[in-house]
Every structure is written in structure tokens, then in C-alpha cells.
């Protein structure tokens, strides 16, 4: 089965600054992938490259088995929702549904109307007069109505209050339940994503820090707590994401490459949020470990 998304060395520069640098990821079909990263990490850049809205400076990108391009067949399989939730403010939801029917080959008007009716969103009111949460729901329902194979959502819940956020993600999971759909949604918050996602891509400082199924990520990453001692043996065998040293204790978040042999260290599970935060605190490329120190023992 070909993956829904593959990128190799994908790079996008605006002027001299790289918004996305050497990004290599794979998202298998059917996953709901969380694209996590701090503001300015390159999430929007990556999503636009995947949608074909912008062209890469270097590297390859394959989406649904083909290179993103201006072609009705390619566009029909992609649903992209920009962060600004772009809709024609003076037009109603019904107008948007009819526009979608004119512009898409596999359009499903009935499901969009049904979904919006279930949410009590008026179809005849200009969308500019709806609340932010309702607008986001309209936009998401429209994109699901297009029946794409890949859904790309850029910070869809960032502007929503907690209730609207839950409703939105509910609509999303219902839509995905139909099957055959791969989703990538970006956010800078891990907690929302953890509930609905089974795959994660983490960007920081324009680079990929992490890419994989969440279960695998959780299994690979462990917290090592032990006495303050030399840790070069562990650094040699595993990839140390973050180290915290106090006068008496060393705490390390590591990505394991096998079992930990040093009995001095206690190994425990760590939450996805902690893993993500550890990577965010880390600005170096993933090939090299960097250390952060807290406490009175500054290096």
C-alpha cells in the first residue's frame, strides 16, 4: 500500500530563510496524523506544499501517489482547510454547498446538509454572521463533502473555545470513520491531538524532530532517572533528547535503541506531551544530542 504522504529532503525557502528544512516524513494511509510544532516551526509551509498551493525549493513530495500539481484529478483527492478558515463571508452555507457541487466531481451535498443540520447551523445565513465555531464547522463539513482521500487541516481548532473544539474534533472523527481517509492536522497543543490522532509528525525550527505512530513513539521514549553520574555510556547507546541535572540526580528523556543496561537508572513511561515539550526545548538537528541544564549546577 502506498503511503498517503511521502516527502524526501523537502525544503522551502522564503528569501534566505528556510521555512522548512530537509523534511523527510511518511504518513501511511488511514492515519490521523498530528502535525505538532511551536509557532513558526514550518507547519503551514509543509501543509501548503502537500496541498500543492506552493512549490518546494528542493526535495520531493508525493501525495496520494503523485506529485502535487494543478490538475482536477489531484485536487479532487485533497481537502485543505487553511488556518483563516476561508469562506465567502457574504454567501450562505447553502451557497457554498452549491458551489462545491459545481466545482467537485465526487461532491456529496446531502451529507454536508445533514451534518450542519445536526449541529443546528443555519444554511441560509451569510457565513460571515455565524460564530467562529460554526464557521469552522461549515468549512470542515464542506471539505468532508468533497470526499477527499487526504485531509489537511491547518490549526483548525486554534481559534475555537473548548466546547466548539470538542464538537469540531467530533465531526472530524465521525467523518474519518467513513473510512479510506487520511488526515493531517496541525496544532501547537498536544492534548487536543492526542485524543483523536494515532500518528505524529513533530516540527521544530523548520526541521522534523519526530515522525511515527504515537504508540511506537510512546514505546520508544522513556524517562531515565538516576544518580548524578557519567552518562556517556547511555548517550552512546541511545538518543538523549533532554537532560536535566541537579546536584544529586540526573533525569534524561531518551529515545531507546534497545534495553537500558545501567541498573542505576530507573526507567519509566513518559507522556506524549512531555516528549513533545522535550523536543521543542531542543533546537539542534536530531542527529546530535543537546543538553539543557536547570538548577544550581549550571554548566
Amino acid at each position: 500500500m502506498t503511503p498517503a504522504i511521502t516527502t524526501t529532503g523537502l525544503t522551502k525557502c522564503y528569501g534566505k530563510t528556510a521555512a522548512l528544512n530537509d523534511c523527510t516524513i511518511t504518513v501511511p494511509e488511514g492515519r490521523i496524523s498530528a502535525l505538532i510544532g511551536p509557532n513558526g516551526a514550518g507547519k503551514t509551509t509543509l501543509l501548503k506544499l502537500l496541498a500543492g498551493l506552493s512549490k518546494p525549493t528542493a526535495g520531493q513530495v508525493t501525495v496520494n501517489g503523485s506529485v502535487p500539481r494543478q490538475d482536477p484529478a489531484f485536487l479532487a483527492e485533497i481537502g485543505y482547510l487553511a488556518q483563516e478558515i476561508p469562506l465567502y463571508r457574504r454567501l450562505s452555507a447553502e451557497d457554498h454547498i452549491r458551489a462545491g457541487a459545481h466545482l467537485n466531481p465526487r461532491w456529496d451535498s446531502a451529507s454536508v446538509r445533514e451534518r450542519l443540520a445536526a449541529l443546528n447551523i443555519p444554511l441560509d445565513r451569510p457565513v460571515g454572521k455565524l460564530s467562529g465555531g460554526q464557521r469552522a464547522q461549515v468549512a470542515l463539513s464542506l471539505i468532508l463533502g468533497k470526499r477527499p482521500r487526504l485531509l489537511l487541516l491547518d490549526e483548525p481548532v486554534a481559534a475555537l473555545d473548548p466546547l466548539a473544539r470538542r464538537n469540531f474534533l467530533g465531526t472530524l472523527t465521525d467523518g474519518v470513520a467513513v473510512g479510506g481517509l487520511t488526515v493531517m492536522l496541525s496544532s501547537h497543543l498536544v492534548t487536543d491531538m492526542e485524543r483523536v490522532c494515532d500518528h505524529i509528525v513533530m516540527l521544530s525550527s523548520s526541521r522534523v524532530q519526530l515522525c511515527g505512530d504515537i504508540d511506537d513513539v510512546l514505546a520508544e521514549h522513556k524517562l531515565l532517572v538516576g544518580p548524578r553520574k557519567d552518562t556517556t555510556a547511555i548517550e552512546r547507546d541511545h538518543y538523549v533528547v533532554q537532560v536535566t541535572r541537579t546536584p544529586r540526580q540526573t533525569t534524561m528523556l531518551v529515545r531507546l535503541n534497545g534495553p537500558v543496561h545501567d541498573p542505576a537508572f530507573q526507567v519509566s513511561d513518559v507522556s506524549l506531551e512531555d516528549i513533545v515539550l522535550a523536543y521543542m526545548g531542543e533546537d539542534a538537528p536530531p542527529a546530535r544530542a543537546a543538553f539543557t541544564s536547570v538548577g544550581d549546577d549550571q554548566q
Binding site: L53, L75, A76, I78, Y80, I85, P86, A99, N104
Partner: peptide, 14 residues
């Protein structure tokens, strides 16, 4: 208004 991003992501080329 950002609506180009709506229009350009329908199954219609730019």
C-alpha cells in the same frame, strides 16, 4: 479574505 484558498482547493485548477 483568504478565499483564494477556498477556490483553489476545489477540484478546479487555478
Amino acid at each position: 479574505a483568504g478565499t483564494t484558498q477556498f477556490a483553489w482547493m476545489q477540484s478546479v485548477t487555478r
